[in-house]
Write a protein that binds this DNA or RNA. Structure first.
Lengths: 252, 252
DNA sequence: CGCTTCGTTGATGGGAATCAATAACGGTGG
DNA sequence: CCACCGTTATTGATTCCCATCAACGAAGCG
């Protein structure tokens, strides 16, 4: 679904998803799509793709550090990353997980607000913010798309806040797993009941505002209740979808 | 700083704030400003203002209910409102408080995601979403402004999530008070150390993921530590700004 | 095969939620 | 102006759950 721009390849009209299907859609596809809509010349398409750099991010590497100037925006094409904020005394929060198709660059600040760390072998497309600014000015379509995305992320952030503020640990974990399953479903284009967890227990804990121990215990609890199974450490099998949804209070 | 559009008044260029100062700026001002930038005719300015309805919202009234279709967007010009989500079992979360200058309409959903309730005698400008869509298409400036706002709100939502996930009750309250103080400062244009709390203790609790009792106890704790004073129930006086900031871990 | 890292399980204590009672506020009407 | 009442806020006593501390087990890797 997402395509890195490693070299100037021809824009293929057929592989472009329909307008408005913004969820699992890589920004890069969006640019391509834009080029189709606006009837750009082949030169212009190539110009767009030339300013993006597709680069690997090895597992464990830090793509950006909190406080640094935001010199680039990114779209993830492979792997998984985490957004981490750390307080002075070591308390940690994982603001979110970034999967293929996600865009990194929606912030009002000109400095990074969190560390961006790869939790798996990853690959991102990088565009300098200045060039992105130009692009946005030139193509209103792009700005509209970004706004759409920002609104979706805002909704998601609010859902997350509700979970943190008012849900019990099992509810939070259920919510998290369902959300992850939904993302993976749109990513792969099919609805499977196996969800892979690229992140560790500690990361889940720091994302849900819990401790690693509580997350672990909650996993066993869900397992004992027959809602999920854990074939491997990093794979969850959803046994009772409806039950999980009910537990998570259904706000999807 | 914000102006309701009760009737077609002349657009006054001088009262318009400079581009880019997006924080306390009413969207209406943004439309006015836009009209200046784009050198619209007086007719067009009036056309823009004609589609907005300035309406009072009595205290306690509900402007919109969760699940309803989003037929309008709003900008608040007076008063204060709260955004409330309620779970089936009664658990409540106050997603945020809406003050003059704030825009209500940044959502990826076409249905309201929370109740919007006035906690004080308020006044809002209402624009049908369809008309807003037209406006956005016609004026790229507006779209850019909205994206800017969405990004700012996203940042704020993430800060909030961090607070909910990892801060202790006193830290959360300190953070909340400082944030409120900052908003009031930009709203009034001056930095006072008195903050008014239009919302009740219960609302604060449901915003911070605590109970009303804990909020109350935490207020007394901050008071005993000499960080704040409570001249009235709904007015906080910040005695030790630096101390509060330190307590809130500084992430402003 | 031992090492290291990560995850699970167990025992304990602290802190916020809960339950309960009192106190302060705000409005109304006398 | 003050007495009254409903609402809201504060304070107190208790309970329960999660964090913490600690030990054990499992998995990846040289």
């Amino acid at each position: 679904m997402s395509r890195p721009a490693s070299g100037p390849e021809q824009s293929s009209t057929t592989s472009v998803p329909a307008e408005g299907n913004g969820v699992g859609e890589c920004l890069h596809c969006s640019i391509r799509h834009l080029s189709v809509c606006s009837a750009l010349s082949c030169d212009e398409v190539q110009a767009l793709e030339r300013i993006t750099t597709s680069m690997p991010v090895p597992m464990g590497a830090t793509l950006a550090r909190s406080g640094e100037p935001r010199a680039h925006v990114f779209t993830v094409t492979e792997g998984a990353l985490r957004l981490v904020r750390t307080l002075a005394d070591g308390r940690r929060q994982v603001n979110g997980f970034v999967l293929p198709g996600d865009y990194l660059g929606l912030s009002g600040s000109d400095h990074h607000r969190y560390d961006i760390e790869a939790i798996a072998e990853s690959r991102v497309c990088r565009v300098p913010t200045s060039q992105m600014r130009d692009l946005r000015q030139r193509y209103p379509h792009l700005e509209r798309k970004l706004l759409q995305r920002a609104c979706q992320e805002l909704d998601a952030a609010q859902d997350n806040a509700l979970a943190l503020a008012r849900l019990q640990p099992p509810e939070r974990l259920a919510d998290f797993l369902l959300r992850l399953a939904a993302r993976e479903a749109t990513l792969l284009g099919r609805q499977g009941n196996r969800v892979s967890l690229p992140m560790g227990r500690g990361d889940i804990a720091d994302h849900l505002g819990l401790t690693m121990e509580t997350v672990s215990r909650t996993f066993t609890k869900l397992r004992q209740q027959g809602l999920i199974a854990l074939p491997h450490l990093n794979v969850v099998e959803i046994l009772d979808f409806a039950g999980l949804q009910q537990l998570a209070n259904d706000q999807l």
